[in-house]
Design a protein around this nucleic acid. Structure first.
Lengths: 219, 219
DNA sequence: CGTTCTATGTATAAACT
DNA sequence: TAGTTTATACATAGAAC
């Protein structure tokens, strides 16, 4: 579990804020210089602080002045075009977060349904307390998996020496068992997004030839 | 071993440079905004690029303009005072690296000498091929360790129930054995600084009550 | 191209000194 | 208050799409 994540908000503790300021200002200046060096472009940064009477600037007064001059020379209209202002910046991050949330909800639903299906298939009761939506999705996933299995069988019939040997090949079994283990410890629904962390144990990226569970579900 | 460390120099490959530029510019803007938010200060960044006709600025044209105005209002003399210009920035990093180098050399020497001493004490030959400097340091370290042992014995005599039970307490033995294991696989002298990495397996920080080897050696 | 993924390197929050 | 150390979070180079 993540333990130390800083909230993106004003640090009320004075000494902590000052410490953070110094560390981050230093890191920022380094980043600016690296960007200029690596990409051969002009840039500058100016940072005011209550701790020092003069602002820290990069690369220096002359360089910053030059960059600033170019900037001010542009018409207001043009400036507004490609500008990254605070609002659009924050909106971008919100949109990104919302997208992540949607994605995680989809994945959680996949896990949930597969978990239900697992309980059902292993005869541990299941099915009786389920509502229509769950039954529907479980049925859908069962159907999908059956189709996948048929495909595999067909493929095996066509070429017995193929690298992908059988639907129950050891490696594949192992992967699925690992997935089930994860679910066992994480049976619930939406708790992934709770609080300050995002855990994504269900990763179906890559190995699409092997996995029977596809991200294409529940679009 | 480190495998991917980017050299701080102009990226000649066009597409790679552009990719890096976009990633880093985005990261830089994020850093600037975080610094302002966390520490409640004013700052701005302006980045020019051949990829876009207009520069990217943060927080926006107005905000940047305000910060810039304050900056330009200062007399040149004052500006130069607390300024972080490129040269001083680089000098700072060089000085820091040199300091690290010195520290690592000292630590390596400690390991080397202790290694020699170990060979000597375990009767694996040793001593015969050594020059005066090595003999001297080995002797010095032996002497120091003996003194430490006497101190411990004395401490034990004064208080047999003390938390630190004996000079040969299990935890201490274990620590030293681990150290010896590391040396076995790393018998040479200065190879720590070779290439792009710095490994510091010999860490005597903390637990100074327990360790017999002190960083105070070889000042 | 732009995206996504993953292994690494870097920044830095906290705890100590 | 400033420097050091350590554990974590974050940035990002490179590869694969």
């Amino acid at each position: 579990m993540t333990r130390k994540k800083v909230k993106l908000a004003f640090i009320s503790n004075d000494s902590a804020r000052k410490a953070t300021f110094k560390k981050r200002k230093k890191g920022l200046m380094k980043k600016v210089s690296e960007l200029s060096t690596l990409c051969g472009i002009e840039s500058c940064a100016i940072v005011y602080s209550p701790y020092e009477s003069q602002p820290d600037v990069w690369p220096d007064a002359r360089g910053a002045g030059r960059v600033v001059a170019q900037f001010k020379r542009m018409p207001e209209m043009e400036q507004s075009k490609k500008m990254v202002n605070q609002e659009s910046f924050i909106r971008g991050r919100i949109a990104k977060a919302a997208e992540q949330l949607k994605k995680l909800r989809k994945e959680n639903r996949e896990k949930e349904v597969t978990h239900l299906m697992y309980h059902c298939l292993t005869g541990k009761g299941g099915l009786h307390g389920l509502g229509l939506p769950d039954l529907n999705d479980v049925a859908w996933m069962l159907d999908y998996n059956l189709k996948e299995i048929y495909k595999r069988i067909e493929a095996i019939g066509k070429d017995r020496a193929a690298p992908v040997a059988a639907a129950a090949a050891p490696e594949e079994r192992t992967q699925q068992q690992q997935m089930f283990s994860e679910w066992m410890g994480n049976p619930g629904g939406d708790q992934q997004m709770g609080g300050e962390e995002m855990i994504v144990p269900f990763n179906d990226g890559g190995n699409q030839d092997v996995s029977l569970w596809s991200n294409a579900f529940f679009s």
